[in-house]
Simulated scan of single mutants.
Amino acid sequence: MEPTLAEGDLLLTWWGRRARPGRIAVVRLPPDADGRPRPLSIKRVSRRDPAAPERWWIDSDNPREGVTSFEVGSLTDDDVLATAPARLWPRPRILTTRHTR
């Protein structure tokens, strides 16, 4: 999620909070191509899937790396586990909504 977040940042998370477009969230990604589970991830929830409005498209703030919905498809509401409204450490700040496509 660089440049927005760096490895080791401590986030405030609201588990069970509904996602909104442009927000950062803790998500459960589908298994990889070999069927192995992936760890929970921090992603930007960009928009509802136009083909399946009950699902979310996810993005990475770093265009050079990171898993997005282009690789794994859209996620269900149940796969969006929490939202992250603020970074607590190393320097506290509100994680503002980024306007997405």
Results as ranks from 00 to 15, higher is better:
P63H: 07
A86K: 07
G8Q: 08
R47C: 01
A52V: 02
A52S: 08
D32E: 14
L75W: 00
T68H: 12
R87H: 01
R101V: 06
R28S: 10
G35F: 08
T96D: 00
V80F: 01
P85H: 14
V45M: 11
M1R: 12
L40H: 03
N62F: 05
P37S: 01
R20F: 04
L10E: 12
A33D: 15
R28D: 10
P37D: 05
R91Q: 02
I24N: 06
R64C: 01
D34C: 00
R55H: 15
A86R: 12
T83Q: 04
W14S: 10
E7H: 12
L75Q: 06
T4Q: 08
N62V: 04
D32W: 11
I94R: 15
R44N: 02
E54F: 02
F70L: 06
A52N: 13
T83V: 15
I58N: 05
A33H: 10
W14K: 10
E71G: 02
A84M: 07
E2M: 05
D61F: 01
P21N: 08
P30T: 11
R36S: 14
M1C: 10
E71F: 03
K43V: 04
D79R: 04
P39Y: 12
I42N: 01
D32S: 12
E65V: 07
R18G: 05
G8V: 14
V67R: 09
V45P: 05
D77C: 04
F70C: 07
R20C: 05
G73S: 06
R101T: 14
R55C: 05
P53M: 08
E7P: 09
R17G: 05
